[in-house]
Design a protein around this nucleic acid. Structure first.
Length: 486
DNA sequence: ATCGGCTCGCGCAA
DNA sequence: TGCGCGAAGCCGAT
C-alpha cells in the first residue's frame, strides 16, 4: 500500500494507534469516492501496516443546515455508486443514512471504540472543520485527517493569499514539488487483507446500513426525511460515475472551445463543480485527464514564477484557462478557508473594499428587494431573474452570470453586509456547489475580495461594477433566456 | 474596434 | 522606492 505525503496528514487528537483494534476505519465525509483519494489511500496503508480489515463508513445526517431533497439525493446517488464500486474491493463499505434527527449520534464514538485508527477527510469550510474537532474529542483511538483537496496541499502555504496573481506565483514555485505525488487512481489495487463481513452486532442494530430503497433516493424515499422538500432535486445526477462521464464529455466536446465559456449559449463549461464539491471526483483526476489529451509532461512546466495566467503549463490556451479555474481559483478559495475562520464574514474583505463600500452605504438605492423577491426571481431585470431561476430550479448558475447575479444583489440591497447575507443564503440553499470554499470566493469577489479598485461610482464605490445591459450586449444569451427567463 | 484612465496591493528589481 | 501587473468593469476619445 502506498503512503500518503506527510504534509497532507495531521493528527486531530492525542490518542495512540491501537494495534489490538478490530479494524481500520475510514470516516468518509468530504471525498466521497473510491478513486484518487488520499484519505482512503492513508486508511488502506494503515490496514496494511496493522494487517487489519478496512471499514469505510460514509454517513449522511439530516440536521445539517440547508438539508433538502436536492443535496440529499445528490449525496445518496453518490453513496449508491460507492456501494457498487467497493463491492469485492476487500474493504467493507457501510453507508449510513440518518432517518430522524440525531439518530446518528454516537455512531462515530462507537466505531472508534473498536477501531485501531480512524482516518477522515480534511475539508476547510461549512460545518466540517467543527465536526472534525468534535470528532477528535469523541474518538478514543487515534484520529487523523487527510487533505485530499487539491494539487497543492493546504499546508504548502502559510497565509491567506489576497490576490490570485500572488497565489498563482506561489503555486508556480511550489507545485513542481507535488506533481509527482498524486493519489493512486485506485488505492485498493492488490488489497489483500483480512476481510470483515459486517460491523459488530450492537452497531448494526442501532445504526443499520442504508437500504437499497433509501439509496435509490426517489421521491418516496426523500419524503421520509425531515428535511426541506421545497428545494427539489437537481437536474444533474450525483455520484462518481456521473462525475467521470461529465469529465469525459467536457474534455471530448467542450475543452477546445473553452475560450467561449462566458457565453451561456455556448455551453462549454465543465459542470464539474458539484462533483468536486461533494468529492465525487478529484481535481487530480481532472488534471490528469486534461493533461493526457494535451500530451503534457512535467518538463513543459514554466520555470519562471511570474504570476502570469497564460504560458504557465505549456499547453493550449483553452486548457491553460481551464487549469487556472481548476487549480489557481479553486485552491485559492481553499487557501482562504484554511487560514481564516471569518472567510464567510463581511469583515474578511480587504480594507480598501470595506472603506469604499462604507463611504457609499448612505447612497440612494434606486431598487430595493426583499429576500423573498430575490429568491423567487421577482426583480425588474429579466436577465437577473433568469439567472436566479436557473439557480433555484437546477441548483447551478452559469459562471459569468453568477458574478453579475451577485453584483446586482449588492446594488439592490440596503447594505453590503445585507448583500453578503442574501448571497450566502440563496447560494447555499440552492446551489449544489454552495457551502464550498469557492462559493465564498465568488460571493466575496462581488464585494472586492481578490479584486482591485476601479472607478468610483454610486453604491459600489471603487468595487468593480457590472451591468445586465453590457452583459446583454456582449454575451450570447438567446437560448439561455428562452429556457430560464420565465 | 481599440486604447488609456480610473485605482489598490503585491512582489520583485533596483 | 519604483514598476508592472492583475477573473470577465465602465467610459469617453480616437
Amino acid at each position: 500500500m502506498k503512503e500518503t505525503p506527510r504534509i497532507r496528514v495531521s493528527q486531530v487528537n492525542k490518542a495512540p494507534v491501537r494495534r489490538d483494534g478490530d479494524f481500520v476505519l475510514y470516516w468518509m465525509t468530504a471525498n466521497r469516492r473510491r478513486q484518487w483519494n488520499f484519505s482512503l489511500q492513508r486508511a488502506a496503508w494503515w490496514a496494511g501496516e496493522l494487517n487489519k480489515p478496512l471499514v469505510v463508513v460514509e454517513a449522511l445526517r439530516v440536521g445539517y443546515r440547508w438539508a433538502c431533497d436536492r443535496f440529499h439525493r445528490f449525496i445518496m446517488e453518490g453513496m449508491a455508486d460507492n456501494a457498487q464500486s467497493f463491492r469485492n474491493s476487500g474493504a467493507l463499505y457501510y453507508p449510513y443514512v440518518e432517518m430522524k434527527k440525531d439518530e446518528g449520534k454516537g455512531l462515530l464514538r462507537a466505531l472508534g471504540e473498536s477501531a485501531c485508527v480512524v482516518v477522515t477527510d480534511n475539508f476547510p469550510s461549512y460545518f466540517l472543520p467543527r465536526m472534525i474537532d468534535a470528532a477528535g474529542r469523541q474518538v478514543s483511538s487515534c484520529l487523523e485527517r487527510v487533505d485530499s483537496n487539491g494539487l497543492a496541499p493546504l499546508d504548502s502555504a502559510d497565509k491567506a493569499f489576497t490576490t490570485a496573481y500572488s497565489f498563482r506565483r506561489h503555486l508556480q514555485k511550489i507545485l513542481p514539488l507535488y506533481l509527482n505525488g498524486f493519489p493512486e487512481p485506485d488505492p485498493l489495487t492488490g488489497f489483500d487483507l483480512p476481510v470483515i463481513q459486517n460491523l459488530p452486532d450492537p452497531i448494526t442494530r442501532q445504526w443499520p446500513p442504508a437500504t437499497r430503497e433509501i439509496l435509490r433516493a426517489d421521491s418516496a424515499a426523500l419524503a421520509r426525511f425531515p428535511i426541506d422538500h421545497k428545494v427539489g432535486p437537481a437536474t444533474m445526477k450525483g455520484g462518481a460515475k456521473e462525475a467521470r462521464e461529465t469529465l469525459d464529455l467536457f474534455i471530448g466536446a467542450c475543452l477546445r472551445r473553452y475560450e467561449e465559456r462566458n457565453h451561456p449559449d455556448a455551453e462549454v463549461t465543465s459542470n464539474l463543480s458539484p462533483y468536486l464539491h461533494f468529492g465525487h471526483i478529484s481535481s487530480h483526476q481532472v488534471f490528469s485527464a486534461v493533461m493526457e489529451v494535451e500530451r503534457w509532461t512535467p518538463d513543459k512546466f514554466s520555470v519562471k514564477a511570474d504570476g502570469r495566467r497564460q504560458g504557465w503549463w505549456g499547453v493550449g490556451e483553452a486548457a491553460e484557462s481551464f487549469l487556472d479555474q481548476l487549480i489557481t481559483w479553486r485552491e485559492l478559495g481553499y487557501n482562504m478557508c484554511r487560514f481564516r475562520d471569518d472567510y464567510d464574514a463581511y469583515e474578511s474583505l480587504p480594507d480598501w473594499a470595506r472603506k469604499t463600500l462604507e463611504e457609499h452605504a448612505i447612497d440612494r438605492r434606486e431598487y430595493r428587494y426583499s429576500p423573498e423577491e430575490f429568491e423567487n426571481g421577482r426583480t425588474h431585470d429579466f436577465l437577473w431573474n433568469a439567472a436566479q431561476n436557473q439557480l433555484r430550479r437546477e441548483g447551478r448558475l452559469h459562471n459569468y452570470l453568477r458574478m453579475l447575479w451577485g453584483k446586482k444583489i449588492l446594488e439592490w440591497t440596503g447594505s453590503p453586509r445585507e448583500a453578503s447575507r442574501v448571497m450566502i443564503e440563496l447560494n447555499n440553499k440552492y446551489s449544489l456547489d454552495g457551502r464550498d470554499p469557492n462559493s465564498y470566493s465568488g460571493i466575496f469577489w462581488v464585494l472586492g475580495r481578490y479584486d482591485r479598485a476601479w472607478q468610483e461610482r454610486s453604491i459600489f464605490g471603487k468595487v468593480r461594477y457590472m451591468s445586465s445591459e453590457s452583459a446583454m450586449r456582449k454575451l450570447r444569451l438567446k437560448k439561455y433566456l428562452e429556457r430560464y427567463a420565465s
